[in-house]
């Protein structure tokens, strides 16, 4: 167990430092912050609504993450394959779980840092009015959790290929499905012929209702379970894909 934490932490540290050693981190953070600001102020009319809450800020997160998180996830394994370092890391005396988890947590932590850097938004609403800080913290937590779910999809698609572009597109498509699964146009396609329970199952896969309820300030165990199981499932699939890798 001690080895598990030490190895996972070792991988995590290296990966995390790698983000800030390359321009990826800075580009990502700047674009993320710009998009957050743009959507909140220009599209959702933060000021005009005249409410001291961050609903207009958080409601855009699923869409911003949809394109930005796969960009972080795409390099996780594809890059290791391209440079051949995958051969190095998978022959070290550490388990596959430790490597997958270490890499995933590093990327998640990195997104967490980007998310924390949106703190001026919080300061703004505190200055303007009297927001429900509990709901804000809760929404941040939900947003972070959702980013983790997106990232786990990216990690999995990244393991499938050495081409980062392919990985990115696959991951965007899967995430888009997860976002839209509960959306009427998608459920309508199914409801024409599929039994009701299947429509319910598919729409249950959607990120949206789970994120929406956390965003309102309600942490429901079911929503928590949903995100954690998406992450778990995707990382498990990630492991299976790597285990069955054909050639380097």
């Amino acid at each position: 167990m001690k080895d598990f934490f030490r190895n996972t932490a070792g991988i995590l540290r290296r990966e995390f430092a790698d983000y800030f050693g390359s321009p990826v981190a800075y580009v990502f953070i700047v674009i993320f912050l710009l998009l957050c600001g743009f959507f909140t102020f220009s599209l959702s009319h933060f000021y005009e609504i005249g409410q001291a809450d961050l609903r207009t800020f958080f409601e855009w997160h699923p869409w911003i993450f949809l394109f930005l998180v796969p960009a972080v996830g795409m390099r996780l394994w594809a890059e290791e394959r391209r440079t051949g370092t995958i051969e190095l890391i998978l022959t070290l005396p550490i388990t596959l779980t430790e490597v997958i988890l270490g890499k995933f947590l590093a990327a998640w932590l990195f997104i967490g840092v980007a998310l924390l850097l949106t703190f001026p938004m919080v300061l703004t609403v505190i200055y303007l009015g009297d927001p429900d800080l509990g709901a804000v913290v809760c929404a941040y937590f939900g947003s972070f959790l959702m980013a983790g779910a997106y990232l786990s999809v990216g990690s999995m698609t990244s393991a499938m290929t050495r081409n980062q572009v392919v990985s990115f597109i696959l991951s965007v498509v899967i995430c888009l499905f997860l976002v839209l699964a509960g959306w009427p146009p998608v459920t309508d396609i199914l409801s024409g012929w599929a039994p009701v329970w299947l429509v319910d199952v598919v729409s249950g896969f959607s990120f949206m209702p789970h994120f929406a309820s956390i965003q309102r300030g309600v942490i429901d165990l079911r929503d928590l379970c949903y995100f954690v199981s998406v992450i778990f499932f995707m990382l498990f699939a990630n492991g299976v894909i790597l285990q069955n890798r054909r050639a380097a």
Binding site: R14, D18, G21, S22, T83, G84, T85, E87, L88, T91, L92, P93
Partner: peptide, 16 residues
């Protein structure tokens, strides 16, 4: 794996 030292083909290493 603990007992092995391995130098893979093309000597991969983390470029950054």
């Amino acid at each position: 794996r603990k007992k092995i030292g391995y130098l893979p083909e093309n000597a991969p290493a983390y470029p950054d």
